[in-house]
Amino acid sequence: MGSYFKFIAKKLLLALLTIFAISVFAFLIVHLMPGDPVRVMLGAEADEAAVEAMRIQLHMDRPLVTQYLIWIGNIFKGEFGKSLVLNLSIRSLIAERLPVTLSLTVPAMVISIVFGILIGIVCATHRGSFIDQLLTVLMTTMNGVPVFWIGIMLMYLLGVNWKILPLMGYVSPKADFADYVKHAILPVFIMCFGPMSSIARQVRTNMLDVINQDYIRTATAYGLPVSKIRYKYALKNVLIPVITLIALQIRSIVGGSLLAEQVFSIAGISRLITMSVMNNDFLTVQALVLVISTFVVVANLLLDIAYGFVDPRIRLTGGK
């Protein structure tokens, strides 16, 4: 167990280093841009005096390292500054928008994992059957068709033609849970699309591989119940590479939320980042890049820790 803690400590250290590297990158976004960032923020029509005043206000007249230390110091204090465009505290903007995005991405992730694994198992255990072929074609199509197109098509079909789902907008689950579900179905569905098919295909391949191995054949020969063999012995081994894939799919879902929030007009954190980029609101972009990346890094860290529970070799050897 000691080596497992070492494993966690190593992963934690790596996560902190990654977050540090991201913070440097997020900070440098402004400086890596071509042209004068302050001029870009204020527009071509702004007076030179206004540009200079803004440069001083943003500490951009100071050395780069000093600027970084001021910025990161403020972030440790929970101060992200004020949006240059909306003139609102970035912290309050994040506090307002993050729950919206999480209330869509978390269900999308859960549905992708649960249904992805289930579909993968069904396909593997019914290999070659009609259901296997149907689901495999469906999963391959889901992976290949552009999600944006699917979103628009579903919107027209379910919202415009059949009028069974609202076309857009968001309702908080706290305000009205039933309405939240109605509004969340389409965005969550398009966010799940790619990740669910990737997980299902991975599970199917792994399952087929595992159920043909000697220890499963032996267990079958001993007359153990099929369900016990599949779900107790085979599934654990199937899930180890799937966890890696799930970690990758978190990024995919965060990316999908950008699209979903745009198409379904949801005021979440992903739309805030799009709007901030388009309006040259670099302070907000910096803060959001840091927050979203930290969220992905932490999610990946938790999955790394989960490895230890699924794979005893990691618990015992510390992942060596």
Partner: peptide, 8 residues
């Protein structure tokens, strides 16, 4: 690029 276009 927007940044170059705007800043100069």
């Amino acid at each position: 690029e927007t940044a170059i276009w705007t800043s100069k």
